[in-house]
Simulated scan of single mutants.
Amino acid sequence: MPAHAEPHIPIGRLDDGTPVYGPPGRLTAVDGQRRVRCHICGALLAHVSADHLTRHGLTPGSYRRRYGLPPGPSLTAPGVGHAPPTTPTPPSWLPRRRDRLPARPAVSLTR
């Protein structure tokens, strides 16, 4: 299927007559690799998420099996970057916590 094809025009049908909007066995990346086409509805998404697939009554595993996609690769568009870390790294000029705390006094357990 050419990347410029209309998203809501099926390119074929499954044996049960269900329309298919992407070629079997691979995700179609468009918009500079920033979005992929859902095989079920033709929507252009950054990621074919479990939430999106739930709307179609499928899980990621059943979606992969139904459309011949391999189990390993992500359902995310290749050009979508990774999320930033959840905890920011402190600037290098900021002393580390252990360098800022005073040393603990030695405690003797004998009387």
Rank of each mutant, 00 (worst) to 15 (best):
M1C: 08
P84S: 10
G17H: 14
D31H: 10
H4E: 03
A43Y: 08
L53F: 10
A77F: 07
R64N: 07
P78N: 06
T110I: 13
P60Y: 10
P90K: 03
G61A: 15
T28W: 02
R64E: 05
H56C: 05
Y21S: 01
G12L: 03
Y21W: 09
G57C: 09
D31M: 02
G61K: 15
I9H: 07
P10A: 02
L69H: 14
H4Y: 11
R65G: 01
H82F: 13
R26Y: 09
A5K: 13
L58Q: 14
H52Q: 07
P19G: 06
G57A: 06
R97M: 03
R35C: 05
R55Q: 14
T59E: 05
P102V: 10
D99W: 07
D99F: 06
S74C: 12
R55M: 11
L94K: 04
T89L: 11
P73D: 11
G81K: 15
Y21D: 00
P7K: 10
H56L: 06
R96P: 02
G32D: 08
A43F: 13
Q33D: 14
E6K: 14
T110L: 10
R64V: 01
R64M: 03
P90C: 05
G57Y: 11
T76I: 13
R100I: 01
H56P: 09
T89F: 08
G17K: 14
V80F: 13
H39N: 05
A50F: 10
G72Y: 12
Y67D: 00
V30D: 00
P71E: 11
G22P: 01
R96V: 02
S74W: 13
P102Q: 08
C38K: 06
A29Y: 02
G61T: 15
G68P: 05
C38Q: 04
A5W: 12
S49M: 10
L101Y: 07
R97S: 01
T89P: 09
S74P: 13
S108Q: 07
P73N: 11
L109G: 13
S74D: 15
T76S: 14
G17T: 02
P78K: 09
G12N: 04
G72E: 15
R55S: 07
L75A: 05
T110D: 01
V30N: 00
Q33V: 00
I40W: 14
G72V: 07
P85N: 09
G72Q: 13
A5E: 04
R97P: 00
P73Q: 12
T86Q: 09
H39Q: 06
L44I: 00
A77N: 03
H82Y: 14
R100V: 06
Q33K: 11
H47D: 06
P2Y: 05
D51M: 06
P24R: 09
M1E: 01
H52S: 02
G61P: 05
P70K: 11
G22R: 04
P88L: 12
D99C: 03
R35A: 09
G57E: 03
G72N: 14
I40G: 01
T86W: 13
S92N: 03
A83V: 11
Y21V: 02
G79C: 09
R97Y: 12
R98A: 03
W93S: 07
H47Q: 08
G79A: 08
G72D: 15
P2S: 08
P23W: 07
A50S: 13
C41E: 04
P24S: 02
D15A: 15
R98K: 06
R65P: 01
D51V: 09
R55V: 01
P71F: 15
T86C: 04
R97D: 03
D16Y: 14
